[in-house]
Design a protein around this nucleic acid. Structure first.
Lengths: 215, 215
DNA sequence: TCAACAATTGACCAATGGGATAATAAAATG
DNA sequence: CATTTTATTATCCCATTGGTCAATTGTTGA
């Protein structure tokens, strides 16, 4: 199934990451899958369209992925990785708890990511979560990481209990703003979205009982 | 197309609402459609399954609806109406601005509505919005009403500008919490959700500049 | 150069989907 | 009662889909 043979073959495109040709194709294909998802939604996403998008034949798609499900599961992983990297990159440059919060918030609304098409594809995948165990697991991981990122900042700003509440609120608010973007493109700008979440955090921190910072 | 003839025929089941037989069937069918959507998602929702769910033949479905699209558009309208009624009912009993806010909030998380299956169907429909002009319009109306309901309460509590911001935040937060329910059933309870939104409102009202009430 | 192997394609298949149609049953109407 | 509508079903059609398979074409490596 997985071609585990000659793991360390020739250094081709990216010697650092030791990509095998098969890995490259797989990446192309799941990106193509995602692109199709953006245009067609889950109902209209067919193997043939994915193949066309990747400039290949349908056969090749099933050569690299056991079946349609697996393909789109990988597509979701890919999309998540991108989103996640945006956050992590900013998180690395953050020094104070508040900066960590902002990193998460701003990372989630990065200019080139916070776009309707991406949101549409995302929505389609989310809609399948209840019927796809794997998708559910991926989704769970994503959420857990998001939460953990938030808590890393919040623990310096609020009591553990409050931090939990706020983290939930922030994730929900972010998701809701994305949804808004998907349902009515243009109804919410990146800046508006960021402001919304930041205001939320500010409001919560002001309301909840303050903690002895650095305790 | 629409049988506009004998609009006021015999009083059958619901004399008040003047339901014709065709209206009853149509309602049955769009409810069946919604039920299928809950189980199968948009990708798995077929006319045959809808027919089966309604205990009828596939033919009958296309007898009452021009095509699949139209059927699901009506399903969305139906679902929305239910949600909306929950809010409106509570709204009628609200007397103060704050009570109006709570009415909207609590109505959106009513016990028998805030359930994963309903959320799943909802998600599937939302995912199709970008590709279905009609769905988009319905969605727009829904959001507008929600907003208006919120503003009717908020205008007594904050400046118009702030009210707009808060209304956006509340809708996004509500949507986000629903999404959470759909993606991880059980991860957020009705009570938690309500508390989250109320806290948000409280935090915002405390933070933004207060207004001269009744001015 | 030749064998082994990976990549890639195209043809094929059975199943299913949406939708059209015609035939039939059931009412409603005058 | 006869006729005109409406309700409902069964059948057919054709395009599409996910998936399999055998055949072809490089590539690699000894």
């Amino acid at each position: 199934m997985d071609r585990n043979v000659n793991v360390d073959s020739h250094a081709w495109i990216d010697p650092v990451k030791l990509k095998r040709l098969s890995d490259i194709r797989r990446k192309e294909l799941r990106q193509a899958a995602f692109a199709v998802l953006e245009r067609e939604g889950i109902a209209g996403a067919t193997l043939e369209k994915v193949a066309a998008q990747a400039g290949a034949s349908k056969g090749i798609v099933l050569h690299y992925f056991r079946n349609k499900q697996e393909l789109f599961e990988h597509a979701m992983r890919e999309a998540n990785a991108v989103l996640c990297n945006a956050v992590v990159a900013r998180l690395r440059r953050a020094r104070t708890p508040m900066e960590r919060m902002d990193a998460v918030i701003e990372g989630n609304f990065e200019e080139h990511l916070f776009q309707p098409p991406l949101c549409h594809a995302w929505l389609s995948l989310c809609a399948e979560v209840p019927r796809d165990e794997k998708l559910a697991r991926i989704q769970k991981v994503i959420h857990a990481r998001m939460r953990s990122n938030l808590l890393s900042g919040l623990h310096g700003l609020a009591s553990p209990r409050d931090a939990d509440d706020i983290a939930l609120g922030v994730t929900a608010l972010i998701d809701g703003l994305w949804l808004r973007l998907g349902l009515q493109p243009g109804s919410v700008s990146r800046e508006q979205a960021i402001l919304q979440v930041k205001n939320y955090v500010a409001g919560q921190l002001a309301t909840k009982e303050p903690v002895i910072v650095g305790a």
